[in-house]
Design a protein around this nucleic acid. Structure first.
Lengths: 216, 216
DNA sequence: GCCCTTAAACTAGCGGTGTAAGTTTTCCGG
DNA sequence: CCGGAAAACTTACACCGCTAGTTTAAGGGC
């Protein structure tokens, strides 16, 4: 087939199909030939629209990041905004868990990831956090959210009871897989609340007085 | 070459060589042929000792997990033990960052990972945490540690200043890569302290009174 | 209205991957 | 002492990401 009258592919269609394959069958299921077949086309044709497979994955990752809501940094105080963002961030990743290992390598050159980093960092700076501290907080929250979305804690445990006979405290571990959602979400909420509680204490200890002094 | 007088391979030698390749050149550099070459042998010979490449990676992952120190759960109170364990855990992962994406899929059937989970969970149970809460705490800490070791936050940002011209708060982001260690460790310590601070507050609110009532 | 560049599909093929199958020889237990 | 398991080998398959070169169509400049 030579050049068609109407293009068969465009970046949007390729990214959507790639995300669908990844969601349905995992990162390793996405090969260029497989993706092309999904689009009714031969493998190398994709290279008319993306230079490498990595660029396709970048685009998929950014399409997920783009659904994260950072608007709270413009309307709420910093702890509430962090909470709102963290929940939205986790929801976005949990909706596409298979891309997370790729996504968490960092923002790189992905526009939506950079925009998100900018919004979070800017929100913390406006709240009075010193720049180094704001960086640390953004990183710590990203650590926690990424870790929580990376792989289900509960699903990491086999449902085979025999595995746990040698471990006195893990007798019930085979039941974790069955309660995946409640375990993972419970752990996330507990950890997020604890983190924010601790950060609020740190704020009161270090930033609050400085602000009062500056304003008074 | 037929069967040699003395075996050329054993699981230990294979795992050590695999870990060395991964540490030096990353997960993707580890192919069966490459690993075999490192051991002076042909690719398929590895399958006399491991059923699949995944089993080799499991063994590498577990050899890393085995270096994590959980002894503090036998000697210190629960917050100090969690802190000690989290630092040891992070050190172990940071020493072999390339295997982390594989490792964080969960303990699966890896003995050292199961032993670690058992020690942490048991320590929290002995401290009086309700079982569901102990599970959540272990998961939350694992989320945070895994996220912090998975990929450097700082290295996730390009050192190309032009990338950040459209993002008003990220003007200094190109300098993150140069301060990788201090940024990543600062974020880890801040987050861990905040997490433990929040958990201690939760303990005082829910477990402490119950214990007093039971003991009084 | 032609012409030239660019675009977008194709086919063929390279070097690499994990691993299955079958061969050869050596070691060890009955 | 001899038969089977063990541990190396070679060969081969289907797949991978990607390059090169081909063909035809689209779109802008004269």
């Amino acid at each position: 087939m030579p050049r068609p009258r109407q293009p068969l592919l465009d970046r949007r269609r390729i990214v959507d199909a790639a995300r669908a394959v990844i969601d349905a069958e995992g990162l390793t299921a996405l090969s260029t030939r497989r993706l092309a077949a999904e689009l009714g086309v031969q493998g190398p044709s994709l290279y008319n629209h993306f230079a490498t497979k990595g660029e396709i994955l970048d685009a998929v990752a950014d399409s997920v990041t783009a659904t994260v809501d950072t608007s709270a940094f413009g309307t709420l105080d910093w702890p509430a905004a962090l909470r709102h963002w963290a929940h939205s961030y986790r929801r976005a990743l949990a909706a596409h868990p298979h891309i997370v290992p790729y996504l968490v390598q960092g923002p790189g050159r992905r526009p939506a990831a950079l925009a998100m980093a900018d919004a979070v960092y800017g929100g913390l700076i406006r709240a009075g956090w010193p720049p180094a501290r704001a960086t640390h907080i953004g990183a710590a929250l990203r650590y926690f959210v990424a870790g929580s979305a990376l792989g289900s804690f509960a699903r990491g445990f086999s449902d085979d009871p025999d595995l746990y006979v040698d471990h006195p405290h893990l007798h019930q571990a085979h039941r974790l897989a069955g309660h995946q959602r409640s375990v993972d979400e419970g752990a996330f909420v507990l950890g997020l609340d604890a983190l924010l509680h601790g950060l609020a204490a740190e704020y009161d200890r270090t930033v609050g007085p400085a602000r009062q002094a500056a304003e008074g």
